[in-house]
């Protein structure tokens, strides 16, 4: 990743992001793609309904081939999560989990969909009473208290580090951490206490959170439980840019037929845009988003 300006930055390397990269890079745009192939919904799938592949094909193979194709057109890949997005002076700036930052003329959101809730006893009942799904939104309500964060990936680790500035103690509950080394090092050097090799069995409390019961039998006495599974998703990374969501459930991003969102230079494609959650739709939308983003970036560069 070099310092200067990209034409097209793509968050997500599933089929939508890969197809966007292939089309944008083949139009000679300078393209960078973020994300982890293993975290694509497709990685463990066996696909029998994708056009022109008569025999079932492994999702992993599709992803690997797509990446090579995009690299052949000179798209760059960075296997890191994005933890922050900003839109200033017609440019998008991004920060990765290792702390690196870059700017781009356009941004294509292809983060897919992922599970955000634990689904354990007590969780639903205590939402807003100590259970939170957004460190950035709610950290301020837990000043001087003991809190726990649950998750294995970048959102949990960066969330736990953020909470150190508010809470008096922070414990991170995880099965096994899956983050880039530099972020892991920052965690190790911090005051966060890592409770590894276990998971939450139940959130305890009557009117408010009093603690969490872990699968290993231990109980942690905490006032707050931040559920931060996976990487930051649409509500965290896109809503802050002012993107309009679907009016019924606020779970997918609204686009037009050019895959444009309401923000100039910002596109979205794939599962993040809504159902059906299928590869054929993801690559179709990725193709359109890649072409449109490359053309927009070129106009901006020429202006």
């Amino acid at each position: 990743m070099s310092e200067d300006l990209y034409d097209v930055a793509i968050i997500g390397c599933g089929p939508a992001g890969l197809q966007a990269a292939i089309h944008a890079a083949s139009k000679k745009a300078r393209v960078v793609v973020f994300g982890k192939p293993r975290k694509s919904s497709l990685y463990k799938a066996h696909v029998a309904n994708y056009c022109c592949y008569e025999e079932p094909i492994s999702g992993k193979e599709i992803l690997e081939a797509g990446r090579k194709q995009a690299e052949n057109f000179d798209a760059e890949f960075v296997e890191e999560d994005i933890i922050e997005t900003k839109n200033e002076n017609n440019l998008f700036s991004l920060v990765t989990e290792s702390g690196a930052s870059l700017t781009s003329r356009t941004l294509v959101l292809c983060m897919g969909v992922s599970r955000k809730k634990l689904g354990v006893k007590g969780e639903k009942r205590l939402v807003g009473r100590g259970v939170s799904y957004c460190v950035d939104c709610d950290a301020n309500f837990f000043k001087g208290t003991d809190v726990a964060v649950v998750g294995n990936e970048s959102a949990a680790v960066t969330g736990a580090l953020t909470l150190l500035s508010y809470a008096s103690t922070v414990q991170l509950i995880c099965r096994k951490l899956m983050v880039i080394d530099t972020l892991h090092d920052r965690l190790r050097e911090s005051q966060v206490k890592v409770v590894e090799d276990t998971w939450v069995k139940e959130v305890i409390g009557t009117d408010e959170v009093e603690g969490v019961l872990l699968k290993n039998g231990d109980t942690l006495n905490v006032k707050g439980v931040f559920v931060e599974l996976g990487a930051k998703g649409a509500l965290e990374l896109a809503a802050n840019l002012g993107v309009v969501f679907d009016a019924e459930t606020f779970s997918s991003i609204e686009t037009n037929k050019k895959q444009e969102t309401n923000i100039p230079g910002l596109y979205a494609a794939g599962d993040i845009v809504g159902q059906p959650w299928q590869i054929a739709k993801a690559v179709g939308e990725g193709c359109v988003a890649g072409i449109e983003a490359a053309e927009y970036a070129k106009k901006l560069a020429d202006s």
């Binding site: 957004c134 950035d136 939104c137 965290e236 990374l237 896109a238 809503a239 002012g242 009016a247």
Partner: peptide
């Protein structure tokens, strides 16, 4: 709500509506 809160921004238009 708060200005830095993504989910708050997402539901803003619905509340206006």
């Amino acid at each position: 709500w708060a200005p830095w809160c993504g989910p708050c921004k997402a539901i803003g238009p619905a509340i206006q509506e």
